[in-house]
Simulated assay, not measured.
Amino acid sequence: MNVSSLSELCDQLEELAQSAKFLARPKGSDPSAEAVLDVEVVTAQQRLDAIFSDMQHRAQRSVEAFDYGMHGPETRGQSSAQPPALARGVHYRVIYDPSVFKRESLREAMLTSVRQGEEARVSTIVPTRILIRDREEFLIFSRAPARSGFLAVRIQASWFAEFLTGTFETIWRSALPLTTERLDDRRLLTEEEVDILRLLSAGLTDESVARSLGVSVRTVQRKVQIIQRNFGASSRFQLGAMSGLQVT
């Protein structure tokens, strides 16, 4: 699966989240009737917070997640449900969008989680914010709640499990790994490096990135080399393959 098809898949996930509410059993329907999917459309923040915590409390084997950086201003650090889940042996793997590095509270939450045992990687092709419990239950956040009319959709279905976990594994394999050594050295992406990575992922040349940021081409190239070194990429091509960049 290439970058183009993954981008299309990101759009399909958003469309799925927007249409999933129509698959839920309507209120007042026959309770003995089998639903097309086990679906809950979440419209209240308090309910969303409860589901997000409950899924982690009920996790027995694994939690995978895409973190698109879509957190409200009220976000204050790591989820309280994660430390006890890690302590009982639940395996956490999270793919972060580079935008997470731009907010101090999110960055510190990520650092805390990794030091407690979470495996973390960074990719520019994170589709949206998604939580996956034991590869059987999913919480998909809407990227545009004002337009969709809901905050998230919780789904449990075996066919969807295979589809979404496969997507996660594809992106995980190409994402940039974050090690505890790198985090301890504070060699994280700066805000400018995040912007460079984002612009390059959109297919811009070094010259176009330099113009967009008001810096020299040499500065852009030097920053790319720093990102390569910090994430263990031996070449710009490898960096592109690891992060989903459209390398030219």
Rank of each mutant, 00 (worst) to 15 (best):
A81R: 04
R133V: 10
S113M: 09
S123K: 05
P73H: 10
R115A: 14
L111K: 06
A85G: 10
I130H: 01
F141M: 13
R129A: 13
P145W: 05
R129F: 12
R147W: 07
E137I: 06
A144Q: 14
L131Y: 04
G77E: 03
Y92K: 06
E118Q: 13
V153M: 03
E74Q: 13
G117F: 08
F150C: 07
A87L: 13
S79Y: 11
S99H: 04
Q78P: 00
Q78D: 01
A81E: 03
F141S: 03
G149E: 05
A152D: 00
S148F: 05
S80H: 12
I155F: 07
L86H: 02
S99F: 01
V90A: 09
K102N: 10
G149N: 06
R115I: 08
S148R: 07
P84D: 11
D97F: 04
L86I: 15
I132E: 01
V90I: 14
A109E: 00
A146M: 11
P83N: 07
E136D: 14
V122I: 15
V90P: 07
Y96I: 03
T112E: 12
A120E: 07
Q116L: 15
E119N: 08
E108G: 01
R93V: 04
G117E: 07
T75C: 08
S99Q: 08
I95A: 03
P145D: 05
V122H: 03
S142R: 02
R143T: 15
V114I: 15
S105I: 13
H91V: 15
T128S: 10
L131H: 02
V114Y: 05
I95R: 01
P145T: 08
V94F: 09
E119R: 11
Q116F: 14
I125S: 08
A81M: 07
T112N: 06
P83Y: 03
Y96R: 01
L86Y: 02
M110W: 03
V122W: 04
E119I: 03
S79G: 13
F150I: 02
F101L: 09
E119M: 09
I125V: 15
I140C: 08
D134K: 11
E108K: 13
D97W: 03
S99M: 04
E119P: 01
D134M: 11
D134N: 12
K102E: 13
T128V: 08
S142M: 05
V90L: 10
L86R: 04
L86Q: 11
F101K: 01
V94M: 13
T124M: 08
V94W: 06
A120G: 06
R88N: 10
E119K: 11
R93M: 09
A120N: 10
D97Y: 08
P98H: 02
V126Q: 08
P73N: 09
L111M: 07
P73T: 12
G149T: 06
E119W: 03
I132F: 12
V114H: 10
F138T: 02
F150V: 00
E136V: 12
E104L: 12
G77S: 04
L139I: 10
P98F: 01
R93A: 11
Y92W: 15
R93N: 06
V94G: 04
R143A: 14
A109S: 14
S148G: 00
